[in-house]
Amino acid sequence: MSKSAFVLYILIAVHLQESLTFNAQTVSTQSTEGQCGGYCFNALKPMLDHIAANQQRWSTCDATLLESTARQDRMESQLAALKDKLSSIEAGKEVPKVNKLENFVQIGSRFFYIEELREVNWFSGTNICRQMGGFLASPRNEEELIAIKEKLRKGRQYWLGISDLAKEGTFVSQATGDLAPLQKWSPSQPDNHGNNEHCVHLQYENFWMNDLPCTYKNYFLCEAGDG
């Protein structure tokens, strides 16, 4: 059967349904044949039977589709409500301000933090000071170092923000990236013992500077960042 003939049959079937206002499940073979004629009825009967047989299934499918659409609408409405709630929470959330000088003490003209509870390696000390808004400390002059030493506990050692990790023998300040402004070394130091001493700390004897392996654990000093 050609496509145009099939379309014609469909149109005839629709016309018959509207003009006779029949129910596809109860229409009688005799009344349809009388309205359409034998040949027309024989041609349309398979389609009418198909409509009658599937009408219930189509009705069920329509109901399911409507239910799915309604469910999707409800989900979209709930999602929109959640987005609005999240936006409200984010808008009302206060971002805590970090007080960079919290727990820092003023020594001379600058602020320092002295860790007295934890012993960590040089890299961990670096990370902790950065989280506090500063750096491992690099004393700028001997007067400042003397003032710092007065705050330290005897018998303890403290990491400074000085190392020659980039170039052996060139001790750089972590805070500035320049040569450490003060290098007050203990006698015979630095010696890079075992070719593995690249981080600087204050020794417990006199709190002068000494090089150590960066993985050793010591207390540490932070200086507040300029920002």
Rank of each mutant, 00 (worst) to 15 (best):
S138Q: 03
Q131E: 09
N141D: 15
K149Q: 11
Q131F: 02
R140S: 00
A137K: 12
G125M: 07
E142G: 12
S138H: 02
F123H: 04
I107W: 08
L117Q: 11
E119G: 12
G134P: 01
A137H: 14
V120D: 08
L152N: 13
S138C: 10
E142W: 13
S124T: 13
L136G: 00
L152C: 11
G134T: 00
G134S: 04
C129H: 01
I107A: 10
E116P: 15
W122M: 02
P139K: 09
I128V: 10
W122I: 01
G134H: 02
F135Y: 12
F135K: 03
M132P: 04
A147S: 12
P139N: 12
I107N: 09
K149E: 09
V120P: 11
E143P: 04
Q106V: 10
K151C: 04
G108F: 06
A137F: 13
N121A: 06
E143Y: 11
R110P: 01
M132K: 06
G108P: 04
G125N: 03
R130T: 06
S124Y: 05
I128L: 04
Q106I: 05
G125Q: 05
K151T: 13
G134L: 01
L152M: 10
R140D: 03
R140E: 04
L145P: 00
A147E: 14
S138F: 01
N127I: 09
F123K: 06
G125C: 07
M132V: 05
F123E: 02
E119P: 10
E143Q: 06
R130P: 04
N127L: 10
L145I: 01
L145W: 01
F111S: 14
V120Y: 12
Q131C: 07
I114S: 04
A137G: 12
L117P: 05
E119N: 09
R153Q: 08
G133E: 06
A137T: 15
A147M: 14
W122L: 04
V105H: 11
F123C: 03
L145Y: 04
V105L: 09
F135W: 08
E116T: 15
R118W: 09
I114Y: 00
P139F: 13
Y113N: 11
E143H: 08
L136H: 01
L145F: 03
I146T: 15
F112K: 02
A137Y: 12
S124A: 09
Y113I: 09
N121E: 08
T126S: 00
I114H: 04
I128S: 02
R140W: 00
